[in-house]
Design a protein around this nucleic acid. Structure first.
Lengths: 342, 342
DNA sequence: CTGTTAGCGCCTTCAT
DNA sequence: ATGAAGGCGCTAACAG
């Protein structure tokens, strides 16, 4: 019952050639209207469906694009993917998902697998920077497959990127803490080999300097993006001779951990201690003590990445377009860092 | 620089036939060891990569599987997808993502698009039941493409499914509310055309009956899965002559809305009013007033769906395997429904 | 307007 | 152990 109908089947039935059927189905201008309609009708009748694989082999374009993310079950990446899918859907592209789990080896494998699968483009957020994978990236470029980085970028010639201004994000959120009267502001950072974390840190530091607050490296702790890590970080910070009175975390989860730990120690938030996170995860808004956070507009980031891809695809191979889109971060001020009446 | 290397290129270089190269690369037993090694070496040297599209066209198997979900940016679906991807990755399958946005028309389009793309299987969560799409489902089966439903299922012959026992989920969560001494338990439900919501409701009702509590249909409100909908539902319920003293919501978001509305009315949770949700969204655990919820083990659901697919793929076309896997729901009791000391 | 031919890259009988 | 030839399904010259 599998009944794979090909253009040959319908050609045979009509006593014409497969080529004619192909042309008719593709609405070629040089085909008699009557036969075109006839072909179309019998095609529908027989339940004909074009074989995209054959088309792909013939044209060299699969109409698939690959998306590589650390993990798909994070609100941020899932939203980006949603944006990508929505933007590409009307153009007939399908989205292939790969996860690296922050493992460079997996990233490498994924890159090669997608190239093998003849995807028409790759949109990705790099995992921690390791130059071992450079070969894989260059391989992608060598095949003339458009490569676009979103959020977590990497400096490679000929590669476009869509990011947010992380420096500014770090700056404005720190500024807000300063505005609340905080004097000793700590920072929970992420893997410094990733641009995003370095830039958030730099924004934080600049905001301090610009406002006459001395930068103290003891206030900067590098930790994972987890509740547990946030708790541990607070524990360390509170043991300093001058413990901080505020914290800007590059991760909402770590910010949450910090809040939990502070509460357990009966430290009043935001009166005694202000907290702010980054990413605007859904839960930051839902909490009774809602958490100030920087939104990265993931949906827009996904859409934009897809648009950049669409611009690049099909362009002459010789010219490499390199587009750097930088979206504006948006500060969502909430209770965790608002000392005045809310 | 695109340099698409084919087996012909490497054959030419070695003055042998493409067929020999093919055999050598595929480790055919009837090939001289020396030539096999020679071929392998030069293949590596030239940077040969097999063209999966050609392979797919030849074999009829694309090594892609399609996953259709209402939306990808929900913790539940994202986790299922993660499970699917993790399980299928070692087997060389790639995952193509489609979103329906709860639109049956999109669901229909997605089904056809995936078949056109020659996927080797389709794993999906159906959107609201509409029999208009039956043609699309039957079309999938006719092509002998394994179809597996997860979470939101649909009764079709020859289709396997992986779900949780929603009836039991509704039952145990309601029982927990009863155990807390609640007498007037309301229920926020979802689209009743979906089995999952009907079953959660039936479990709820059965728990009431089994514990001598009269079922009151005025306590059942159908609403969307959103904070706003939860607020509205509470408003309606509190206007009843005997307002409820507890609520079991089929959606965590609606449960959250309910809690917010109750707080605004200064109704004490859980002392005066108990609340429980469904899905175990991350935020239910993070809240200061953590929310009792039923976990659906999405990761496991994804993995299991993938395993069921792997079992079915490649089986003789004539025999239709129909497997119904039902996972156990897991009640996470939290503050919102715990009157005794926590 | 339509038929013929060739080829995308690979595998697989059928010979040798 | 290897070469030759055909075909997966479709399109795109090149004829007529």
């Amino acid at each position: 019952m599998s009944e794979k109908i090909t253009i040959y089947d319908i050609a045979k039935r009509l006593n014409i050639t497969a080529a004619t059927v192909s042309r008719a189905l593709n609405k070629s201008p040089k085909i008699k209207k009557s036969t075109r309609e006839l072909v179309q009708e019998t095609a529908d009748l027989m339940g004909y469906k074009p074989n995209k694989l054959a088309l792909a082999l013939k044209s060299g374009r699969s109409n698939n694009i690959g998306v590589i993310v650390p993990r798909v079950d994070s609100n941020f990446f899932a939203s980006v993917i949603r944006g990508i899918e929505e933007e590409l859907y009307p153009h007939g592209y399908q989205v292939i998902i790969c996860q690296t789990h922050e493992d460079p080896k997996r990233e490498n494998e994924n890159l090669y697998a997608l190239i093998d699968a003849q995807v028409d483009g790759i949109l990705m957020s790099v995992t921690a920077v390791n130059n071992e994978n450079d070969g894989a990236f260059l391989n992608v470029l060598k095949k003339n497959v458009p490569l676009i980085f979103f959020d977590r970028s990497k400096l490679i010639d000929g590669v476009s990127s869509v990011t947010i201004n992380d420096f500014k994000g770090g700056y404005i959120v720190t500024k807000q803490l300063i505005n609340q009267g905080c004097k000793y502001i700590a920072h929970l950072s992420g893997d410094q080999s990733l641009e995003i974390f370095k830039n958030r840190f730099l924004g934080y530091r600049q905001a301090l300097v610009d406002n006459g607050i001395p930068y103290n490296e003891k206030y900067v702790i590098q930790c994972k993006s987890s509740v547990e890590a946030g708790k541990n970080a607070i524990t360390i910070l509170l043991e300093l001779e001058t413990p901080p009175d505020a914290i800007f975390s590059s991760s909402d989860f770590a910010a949450l951990g910090a809040i939990q730990e502070l509460k357990e120690r009966n430290i009043n938030i935001p009166q005694e201690f202000c907290v702010a996170g980054f990413s605007n995860e859904p839960f930051t808004k839902f909490m009774e003590l809602s958490i100030t956070s920087v939104d990265q507009s993931p949906l827009e980031m996904g859409r934009m990445s897809a648009r950049v891809f669409l611009e690049q695809v099909g362009k002459t191979d010789t010219i490499k377009i390199e587009k750097k889109v930088v979206l504006a971060p948006e500060l969502h001020i909430r209770k965790s860092s608002t000392r005045t009446a809310f």
